[in-house]
Structure formats: C-alpha cells, structure tokens
Amino acid sequence: MRIKYFCMAAFIFVGLLGCSQNDSNESELALIKTTNPSPVVIENNKENKLDLVESIKKDIESIKELYDVAIVKGEEDTLVAYKVKHLQRFHMKKIEKKMNDMLEKKYPDENFTVSSDYKIFLEAVKLNEKMEDPDYPKKKANKRLKEIIKLKNEMA
C-alpha cells in the first residue's frame, strides 16, 4: 500500500514540475513556440525607419502560410527571418518566391535577405534581445547582422 502512495506522489510531483513556468529569454524558446518579436532598427535615424519595418512586418504577417517573423533593419540590409506552418513546408520555394516578389515590388529601395532557416531566425531573435539593452552599441549590432546574413548566404 505504501508503494502505491509513493508512486502516486512521485507521479504528481513530476507532473507539477513539468507544468511549471520558467520566465526565460525568448530566444531559448524561439524554435518551439511563436515569439513574434518586434522589428529592430539598427540605425542612427531610427525613428524614420521604424514605420518602414512595421509596415514590412505587417505585410509579411499577411502571408497565411507563415506564423512567426523576425525583422532586423541594418544600415544597408534588412533581414527577414520567418517560420512556415508545418503543413506548408512542402511549398517553401513558392512561399519564398512570393515573399521576395512582394517585398521587391513594394520596397524597391531596400536590400532584403529572406530566410526560413531556424538558425537564422534564432540568431535574429537573439540580436533583437541584445538590442533591447540601450547600452548595446549599434556598430556591434550592425556587425552581428552582417555576420548573420553572411551565415545565411553560406548555407544557401
């Protein structure tokens, strides 16, 4: 009888541990759940470009095959990292072409790097978190953005 109660208590204890909430960084859970990070602008004239990246994010989110998007606007480049809904993964090339065409048509002056790779998405979320710190230097952030874009280009 004691063994039965002990097993029941252990089962409940393990169940409660599994349900506990741990408030950690978004980047740690970015691949598992929808994080919906706000767009980041790494420029000196940040106010002018904030409306632009918000507009880009709104346009990207309107694509029904996607469920999460991270946008980082640097001095020269704009990184758009996104996650595709599971059943839409068979249409990745079509989705990326549709997105590229829309972005190039609507924002011809911007230089876009578009990626559906989870690693690129995760790095964009991490950079987003670092940019929340007002002491994080813009020069370092822009350098990191270029490294992420270089990583994306090497993977392709």
Rank of each mutant, 00 (worst) to 15 (best):
L31Q: 06
K146L: 02
K46W: 01
I32C: 01
H86L: 05
G74C: 06
N142T: 02
K33N: 11
E26K: 13
K105I: 07
F121P: 10
K130P: 00
F13T: 10
V114Y: 03
A70K: 07
G15R: 04
M99G: 02
L79A: 08
V84P: 04
F13A: 12
N36R: 05
E104P: 00
L151I: 02
Y67E: 10
T113M: 03
G74I: 03
S38E: 13
K85Y: 09
S24P: 00
I56D: 06
D51I: 06
V14H: 02
E54T: 08
D117H: 14
L145A: 00
G15N: 13
C7T: 11
T78A: 13
E104Y: 04
A70R: 06
F11M: 13
N44I: 11
D23S: 08
K105S: 14
H91E: 14
K97S: 14
P39F: 06
N25E: 09
E132V: 03
P134W: 05
K73E: 12
I3P: 00
I42A: 01
D135W: 01
E65Y: 09
I12R: 01
A156C: 01
N142Q: 07
M102L: 15
P37Y: 05
N44Q: 13
N142K: 04
S62Q: 10
N111W: 02
E110S: 07
M8R: 11
V41H: 04
N100P: 00
N153T: 05
N22E: 08
E96Q: 15
Y107L: 05
N111L: 07
M92E: 13
R144L: 04
P37N: 07
R2C: 05
V72C: 05
S38P: 00
V114D: 09
K146M: 01
E123H: 10
D59A: 05
K83Y: 10
E123Q: 15
K58R: 11
E26P: 00
K146F: 01
F13P: 01
Q88S: 14
V14M: 09
E96G: 02
M1N: 13
V125E: 07
Q21M: 04
L31N: 15
A141T: 02
M131S: 11
M102T: 10
N25G: 02
S115E: 11
T78L: 12
F112G: 10
L17T: 00
M155N: 15
S116L: 03
E54M: 13
V40Y: 07
A124D: 11
L127N: 06
L103P: 03
S62N: 15
A10R: 04
S62Y: 10
D77P: 02
Q88N: 14
V53W: 13
F6C: 07
K94G: 03
E26G: 12
S24I: 09
I63K: 05
D101M: 08
G74P: 09
N22G: 00
K150C: 00
I71A: 09
F112Y: 12
C7D: 06
K93E: 12
K143R: 13
L17G: 04
K138S: 12
E104T: 08
L66K: 08
E96W: 01
